[in-house]
């Protein structure tokens, strides 16, 4: 059974040989390939090469287009600050939609127009070509709250929930239309699965999440499914208060950050939901030992049950010892069904 077959079989409820292994790697992958992260984020060929090398070295079941949250916002015209060897970032102080009336005049970028979104679409195509049928190819889009924050400014968006709820709905509807086009382009280029990253959603409580965020995440999940691809939902931060709602989205994989206990997630989301994660990326994966990593991931597996994929709570941090990542691989491959 190869990596792609293993992941898809698990998602389809078919027998698998051992647990799939899908840790998020970005800076760790760039470092593994010996390239500065600025180049990784700018050039799909560098990204694809680093992803393939890292997946081969640690026997991951997938490769991914994920790099930074600024691709769509950059193509919308947002100001992006670049660094040589870390992810590009959006300038919060000078947000594109600081004046919210601009939203009505803002054109949705074409994912094939040659900008940063196109570079990701090209990454999906190149990863498909390089991975063949051996490994699953993951595309990536931003969720409504994360992308809304990237465009509006996260501090301002948090106030908008109370000051101008109508604008938040308008913004999120605009965002998901753009994101679905982006997802379609990546799927057509070869992505099997689309990751939806909605980091800022963990800053709001269940009341605002249910009223504002969940309906638009649901439209993204359903839209990607209609395009024939699978969905991995990842919300950085503490999603513990949101677990029950997240379980209603129908995401094929719910990838949880470390503050959300997997046993609570299992109880909230039911026995069929595939869970992924969620050892503490810094305190356990980077700062621990192979023994402590193994113990922590075994505890995650025990809490989640067998509808489970091995991974960290978030990105494998830069500076993580290779032997700690190898401990994840050994654990996944030591499980037997």
């Amino acid at each position: 059974m190869n990596g792609r077959e293993r992941v898809l079989a698990l998602l389809d409820g078919q027998p698998i040989d051992h647990l799939p292994l899908m840790p998020i790697t970005m800076m760790f992958a760039a470092d593994t390939a010996g390239v500065p992260y600025g180049r990784y984020a700018l050039d799909h060929r560098v990204l694809a090469d680093a992803q393939c090398r890292t997946a081969a070295q640690y026997d991951f079941d997938y490769v991914s287009c994920i790099s930074d949250p600024a691709r769509e916002a950059a193509d919308c015209g947002a100001k992006v600050v670049w660094f040589d060897d870390q992810p590009p970032a959006l300038d919060e102080v000078d947000a594109l939609l600081a004046d919210k009336s601009r939203l009505r005049r803002l054109a949705r970028p074409d994912p094939q127009a040659g900008g940063r979104m196109t570079d990701r679409v090209q990454a999906a195509a190149l990863l498909r070509e390089r991975a063949g049928a051996e490994r699953l190819v993951e595309g990536w889009i931003e969720g409504p709250c994360a992308q809304g924050a990237d465009l509006r400014g996260i501090n301002t968006l948090m106030l908008d929930f109370y000051d101008d709820p109508g604008f938040v709905h308008e913004l999120f509807a605009w965002v998901i239309d753009m994101e679905l086009r982006f997802a379609r382009a990546q799927i057509e280029a070869g992505a099997d699965l689309i990751g939806i990253g909605d980091a800022a959603a963990s800053l709001v409580g269940p009341h605002l999440y249910d009223a504002f965020v969940l309906p638009y995440e649901k439209r993204l999940v359903d839209g990607v499914h209609e395009m024939g691809a699978r969905v991995r939902l990842h919300i950085c931060g503490n999603t513990r208060p949101l677990l029950t709602s997240m379980g209603t989205l129908g995401a094929d994989i719910v990838d949880l950050d470390y503050p959300a206990p997997l046993d609570e997630a299992r109880q909230a989301m039911g026995p069929r939901q595939v869970l992924l994660g969620n050892i503490d990326p810094v305190r356990v994966l980077r700062d621990g030992t192979p023994e402590s990593v193994t113990a922590a991931i075994a505890a995650c597996h025990a809490a989640a049950g067998d509808r489970y994929i091995v991974g960290a709570g978030c990105e494998v941090p830069r500076g993580t010892p290779p032997e700690n990542v190898q401990a994840l691989t050994r654990y996944a491959q030591s499980t037997r069904f």
Binding site: L203, V204, G205, L208, P241
Partner: peptide, 14 residues
């Protein structure tokens, strides 16, 4: 205690 979240803190502080 996770009874209020970032938006509620921000509007209270404002």
């Amino acid at each position: 205690a996770h009874e209020v979240f970032v938006p509620e803190m921000l509007i209270a502080a404002r």
